[in-house]
């Protein structure tokens, strides 16, 4: 084998090994590298109460309720399989709405009850003009798993 062919094979082998190792590592880290817990994870893993975690899912349709004080809201976060009731006091992002994605940071106060300190809206990969969006209902499909 000529020297340059040898170098080519060596370089490509190294490249394949590197990328392969990273892909393996990434899929192994799937749970640790997740940015938030889904309601199902939280139920399955028995997330301890009081620990600061992020909870992500869809704001269940028809679940959003405003308390009499005007700034506190209650809503349910669901991933289709499990549901958690969340409470938050403060201003929410414009994109926070029923049927849309949400990532809340806070802690579980009781099993199935979550107190949020911050609320982030998570939108999905579907972009369309208003006239194509129908009655304005929004589904963050990618959060259901």
């Amino acid at each position: 084998m000529k020297a340059k062919n040898q170098r080519l094979v060596l370089a490509l082998l190294a490249l394949v090994a590197l990328v392969g190792a990273v892909l393996l590592g990434m899929s192994a880290l799937k749970d640790q590298a997740s940015y938030f817990y889904s309601p199902s994870d939280a139920v399955r893993d028995h997330v301890e109460l009081g620990r600061t975690v992020r909870l992500g899912g869809m704001v269940e349709k028809g679940s959003l309720r405003r308390e009499p004080d005007g700034v506190t809201i209650d809503f349910r976060v669901t991933d289709g399989a499990a549901t958690v009731t969340a409470r938050y006091t403060g201003i929410v992002p414009d994109l926070f709405r029923e049927g849309s994605g949400v990532v809340a940071e806070g802690r579980f106060t009781a099993p199935g009850r979550f107190a949020a300190d911050t609320i982030l809206a998570k939108h999905d990969e579907n972009y369309k003009p208003p006239e194509l969006a129908g009655n304005g209902m929004h589904e963050t499909g990618s959060l259901k798993r």
Binding site: M26, S34, F36, S38, E125
Partner: peptide, 11 residues
């Protein structure tokens, strides 16, 4: 695609 992220998936 593999991790849950705040960033949306591929459009």
């Amino acid at each position: 695609l593999w991790w849950r992220t705040l960033h949306q998936g591929e459009s």
